[in-house]
Computed example of a mutant assay.
Amino acid sequence: MKVSILVAAFLGIVVCPVARAFSYDDFNLDTYKDESDDQLFKAFENRRNDQWNSRNYFSEEYEESFSEKDDINNEFKNVESYSLDKEIPAFINWTHEGVVSPVENQGNFKNSWAFAAAGVIESRKTIKTGKLVILSKQNLVDCCKAGTTFALGCILVLGGIDTETSYSYRGLRGGCRFQRRNVGAKIKKVYKVKPGDELGLEKKVAEGPVAADISREAIKKYTGGVYNKPCKDTKNYSVLVVGYSKDFWILKTSMGVNWGEKGYMKLARNKNNLCGIASSATFPGF
Results as ranks from 00 to 15, higher is better:
Arg181Trp: 04
Val190Pro: 02
Lys220His: 13
Ala211Trp: 03
Val157Thr: 13
Thr223Pro: 09
Ala151Glu: 03
Tyr227Thr: 09
Tyr222Gln: 12
Tyr227Leu: 13
Arg216Cys: 14
Glu217Val: 14
Tyr227Gly: 07
Thr163Cys: 08
Lys220Cys: 15
Asn182Gly: 08
Ile219Met: 07
Thr223Leu: 15
Lys229Met: 15
Ser166Gly: 07
Asp197His: 07
Ala212Asp: 03
Gly153Pro: 05
Lys203Tyr: 12
Gly225Ser: 13
Gln179Ser: 15
Tyr169Gly: 10
Gly184Asn: 00
Gln179Cys: 11
Leu152Thr: 01
Ile155Glu: 02
Gly224Cys: 06
Ile155Gln: 00
Lys221Gly: 07
Asn228Tyr: 10
Cys176Asn: 01
Glu198Asp: 05
Arg173Thr: 02
Ala185Val: 06
Glu207Leu: 12
Asp213Met: 08
Val157Ser: 11
Glu164Tyr: 10
Leu156Asp: 03
Gly175Cys: 14
Lys221Phe: 02
Arg216Asn: 14
Val157Tyr: 01
Gly175His: 15
Ala151Gln: 03
Arg181Cys: 12
Tyr191Val: 06
Glu164Phe: 04
Leu156Phe: 09
Glu207His: 08
Glu207Ile: 12
Gly175Glu: 10
Tyr167His: 10
Glu207Val: 10
Leu156Arg: 06
Pro195Met: 13
Gly153Thr: 08
Lys229Cys: 13
Ala211Thr: 05
Val226Ala: 08
Asn182Ala: 05
Val226Gly: 10
Tyr169Pro: 04
Thr163Gln: 07
Asp162His: 04
Gly174Lys: 00
Cys154Leu: 01
